[in-house]
Design a protein around this nucleic acid. Structure first.
Length: 926
RNA sequence: GGGUUGUUAGCUCAGUUGGCUAGAGCAUCUCGUUUACACCGAGAGGGUCGGGGGUUCGAGUCCCUCACAACCCACCA
């Protein structure tokens, strides 16, 4: 492995020039592999060696992005967040794995392929399942690795060796295992019931795949003539029953009319028969509680084959079901000659016309109702009676709910737990079969002589098989993609399922078993129900464990104006375009800043710009440090040939960074910066443990820019101390690396004294500071700020001032630093004659009163007067603050009830403010 | 019809358990070529925290209520 020094410090950081090279470096090194490079060289040694404890693991899996698609901004966000965590925990020496995935995207890809078929005037029905599968496979082959390249562009530190494709054999095998176990446990059944069909795609959907939209529609009142019965005896009761419907075409499949048993209006009708309009059939009038008396006419047509509720009614009353609409959305032969072959919408018009002709239409009104649509093509969903595979979901959902109630999984934000609980509590049986060929074939075969005889068999490539002398025909359906991806965490870690063998027995050196359950699942709120819920249910079922210990939901990234991004609106922002313009680090920072868990928020370009600026700032800081430290820096501990050694991996584990033990902190600024960096690191650890990403970015930004660059580097310019500068830079790079990996690594590779990879660095020991010295720098900062304030507030004041100090050791010891920071002409002690003037009560300049220092700026009286008005403003402010504090402390209830420290603090601040006021007044000569 | 979340500076958003002067980035204004950085430095302006009420010594934060917005769920024909 060769890390040739290819990087040079250009004036401006150009991410486009280096990102790909840096990623290649990482990937080749093996740092992203499960456990990192620890097992490859001696850093952590052999785990079996006595005394060595296995490192604590940290793991996460990627929601597999569509293998053939392009990453969208949500992917970039989600992967960026996980990458922050992965890199962060590597820095802490954890045994980390971030497992990538690639999704065959069953339905999505199928839709695209079907469209391509249309172009060559073919349909799916022209081919066998195998042919179609192979064709789709070839169709997507050339774009198969599209998104993998894009993940690299984002700098994601995932273990490519662990990459799992959703059609990999191990996925299929485990999915079959699960299916078989569910079957054996009686949780799989072949359901003859209403399923939601998309007539365009000719497949059924799960409830969750249907989008409901409010739409205007028409409700028709239709008269069904009553046949027979003795109701004719009374003339005032009409010989018809009027029902209301929005879907008159389904009337052809009616097998009853229902009324509420408690409905006085229809009491006498129950048990009678009506003639179903447009047909010759007689259907009964039945009573069922399901009917809402207050809605419409209080009488409902019952079409068991085309409405889920009606199906239920039909079951209760043993009604026939007649399918009048087929899977293609067209009327079937059952609908009668006049309608067969028409699409449902046409049939509706014709039915209305025919009813009108027969004078059976009694009313018509416009209403707004909700209609289910295909989430992909927008077609109106047809509820059709069909045979599908279902999972009895109650036992799974109840177990999952219990795990949630027992807090086995922590949720960020917390309220998502309740949302999920509500979902588990209302979840109904899950249709897991799909009528598309691109997916995992369902391993089930049906006895050709006995429709009800289904067997499990994984020989899905055989169209028919023979078992015990009986011939079986395979099911042509495939699994719902969520059924397989719901098993993702234990599939990708090869975790032994159904307790067939112990996890310990399975664990080999290459095994990822120890990474299950995952430390965290991080994904968008949109995946709560379709994915996270399924993973919890199936994870518990297959492994007896929750699949992850914590779940973090990020909110959806909207466009710059807070609108949902969608292709149809044309407001989609591509992460790749952002990266091309600003770099991957800037993208990652920008998208992470200003966000909180679970909250949908607008994409903010200005945040990306802020991120870009930070990269540049850090870059230039590094250039400066390298320049001051010199090319030879580090030779004394790396050996004289250090410069040449850069060309090889430093596998001897020698010092690759500034040895902390050799650090000699020489001035207050150095003590201060060391303390600030130590605190930032501790704070960062806490923030990330709570998944407070935005605040973490802010912390890093603020530390690097407003602490290290603005104060430490500026202070250091007056007294260069190479080891400390180098150390501070290294700490900054480590602090920032999880958030902006490319620029920090590029810098690491460009510095003369660092070696190996920043991505494989650990937080080592940190330097020790002296608190008193640190506090001194705080005082120096206050003084400098006051000087800057004074100078900025004197109109037309351009000269460089001198600072004169009296009996003030702090200024005396740090005169040069203060001069540099405040851009003063000179900092010098009081001269005798000035002391005399002071003794005589004369002015020697502007007394700096706000910072508790004995010091003056040599400004003449006229200038001081000009400054006076500003000073008076400050006096007023201070008086206001004092008044506020006094009022608070005079409030007996406050003093009695507020915590003692708070009261003490208030008192202390009051003292300080009074002191400041006195000085200000003195400055003004009042 | 139910449920959830939100409404804080011009814009995009932070603000964990109520604690005193509400923060950041970007934008704006003034000044500044100074040993890295104009993708820069120094300084400044800008908020009655959606309206109203309540609890509390103290409310952006808790409670009630109203308004508006977004999202999710739902079998009303």
């Amino acid at each position: 492995m060769c890390y040739t020094k290819v990087m040079r410090f250009e004036k401006v950081y150009e991410p486009q020039d280096t990102e790909a090279k840096i990623y290649a470096l990482w990937e080749a090194s093996g740092v992203f592999k499960a456990g990192g490079r620890a097992h490859e060289h001696e850093i952590d040694g052999d785990k079996t060696e006595a005394g060595k404890q296995p490192r604590e693991t940290w793991s996460t899996v990627m929601p597999p992005p569509n293998a053939n698609g392009n990453l969208h901004i949500g992917h970039g966000f989600e992967m960026g967040l996980k990458d922050i965590l992965a890199r962060h925990y590597r820095l802490y020496g954890r045994d980390v794995v971030y497992i990538p995935g690639a999704d065959h995207a069953g339905f999505e890809t199928w839709v695209v392929y079907e469209r391509a078929l249309e172009h060559i005037d073919k349909t799916r029905f022209d081919f066998s399942r195998e042919e179609l599968y192979q064709q789709v496979w070839d169709f997507v082959a050339n774009t198969r690795h599209n998104m993998e390249i894009q993940i690299r562009m984002l700098g994601i530190s995932c273990d490519w060796n662990a990459l799992t494709f959703t059609l990999d054999p191990k996925v299929v095998n485990t999915v079959y295992d699960t299916f078989r176990h569910l079957w054996a446990d009686g949780l799989i059944y072949r359901g003859h019931k209403i399923a939601s069909f998309c007539p365009q795609h000719q497949t059924s959907f799960a409830d969750i795949e249907i989008t409901h939209k409010e739409e205007k529609g028409t409700m028709w009142d239709i008269a069904y003539p009553i046949v027979g019965g003795d109701i004719s005896a009374t003339d005032d009761i009409p010989r018809e029953i009027v029902i209301s419907t929005t879907r008159p075409e389904t009337l052809l499949g009616d097998t009853a009319v229902a009324v509420n048993p408690a409905d006085e209006r229809y009491k006498d009708y129950i048990g009678l028969e009506v003639k179903l309009p447009l047909t010759d059939r007689l259907i009964p009038i039945i009573a069922d509680d399901y009917v809402d008396m207050s809605f419409g006419t209080g009488a409902v047509k019952i079409t068991p084959a085309h409405d889920a509720n009606d199906f239920g009614v039909g079951e209760r009353h043993s009604l026939d079901d007649i399918s009048v609409i087929g899977v293609d959305g067209k009327m079937t032969n059952e609908a009668g000659e006049a309608y067969a072959g028409m699409v449902a919408a046409e049939a509706r018009t014709k039915v209305i016309e025919d009813l009108e002709e027969q004078e059976l239409l009694r009313g018509k009104r416009e209403i707004v109702h909700t209609v289910g649509h295909c989430y992909k093509c927008g077609s109106v969903i047809q509820p059709l009676l069909s045979d599908q595979w279902f999972i009895k979901v109650r036992p799974l959902a109840e177990r999952a709910a219990k795990a949630l109630e027992n807090d086995e999984i922590a949720f960020y934000p917390q309220n998502k737990k309740n949302e999920l609980l509500a979902y588990f509590n209302e979840l109904r049986d899950w249709n897991i079969s799909r009528q598309i060929p691109w997916g995992i074939a369902i391993p089930a075969f049906q006895n050709v002589d006995d429709e009800s005889d289904w067997i499990f068999d994984s020989r899905v490539t055989e169209e028919s098989i023979e078992v015990d002398g009986k011939k079986y025909k395979r099911d042509e359906d495939t699994f719902d993609t969520w059924f397989s991806s719901g098993q993702w965490p234990f599939i990708v870690t090869d975790y032994p399922v159904y307790a067939e063998s112990s996890p310990e027995a399975e664990a080999t050196s290459q095994s990822l078993v120890k990474y299950y359950p995952n430390s965290v699942m991080e994904c968008g709120t949109d995946l709560l129900r379709p994915w996270v819920a399924k993973m919890i249910m199936l994870g518990l079922y297959a492994t007896d464990k929750v699949p992850f210990k914590e779940v973090y939901f990020h909110g959806m990234v909207q466009d710059e104006h807070g609108k949902k991004m969608s292709k149809s609106k044309g407001n989609v922002i591509s992460p790749l375009e952002v990266i091309a313009e600003y770099g991957a680090d800037a993208f990652r920072l920008g998208v992470t800043m200003n966000r909180s868990a679970g909250q949908a928020q607008a994409f903010s370009k200005s945040s990306v710009i802020a991120g870009r600026n930070l990269c540049n700032k850090l870059w230039n800081m590094a250039r400066f440090v390298q320049d001051k430290v010199g090319e030879d820096y580090g030779e004394d501990w790396m050996g004289a040939d250090a410069g040449n050694k850069r060309d090889d991996v430093n596998i001897e584990g020698e010092h690759e960074e500034t040895p902390v033990t050799e650090l000699d902190l020489r001035n207050p600024a150095e003590h201060w910066v060391v303390a600030e960096l130590n605190e930032a690191r501790e704070e960062l650890e806490k923030l990330l443990a709570d998944y407070r990403f935005a605040e973490s970015v802010e912390l890093v930004y603020n530390t690097i820019w407003h602490k290290v660059a603005d104060w430490f580097i500026e202070a250091e310019k007056t007294a260069i101390n190479p080891p400390v500068m180098a150390y501070v830079l290294e700490q900054c790079l480590k602090l920032a690396h999880p958030f902006m990996p490319f620029v920090t690594e590029t810098i690491w590779q460009s510095l003369s004294w660092t070696d190996d990879l920043l991505a494989d660095e650990k937080w080592g020991d940190h330097a020790i500071h002296d608190n008193k010295k640190r506090a001194e720098f705080g005082k120096i900062m206050k003084l400098v700020e006051e000087i800057r304030f004074v100078e900025a507030n004197i109109p037309e004041h351009k000269q460089k001032d001198k600072l004169i100090f009296g009996d003030d050791l702090l200024i005396a010891e740090n005169a040069e630093m203060i001069r540099g920071l405040a851009k003063l002409d000179e900092v010098r002690p009081l001269k005798d004659k000035e002391q005399k003037k002071l003794d005589d009560g004369e002015s020697i300049g502007l007394r700096l009163a706000n910072s508790e220092r004995v010091a003056w700026l040599d400004i003449d009286e006229k200038t001081i007067e000009r400054y006076g008005s500003n000073l008076r403003k400050r006096v007023e402010e201070t008086r206001g603050e004092i008044a506020q504090l006094e009022t608070r402390l005079e409030n007996e209830a406050y003093v009695a009830k507020a915590p003692a420290e708070l009261v003490e603090e208030s008192k202390a601040i009051l003292e300080l403010k009074r002191d400041i006021l006195n000085r200000l007044l003195r400055e003004l000569g009042e």
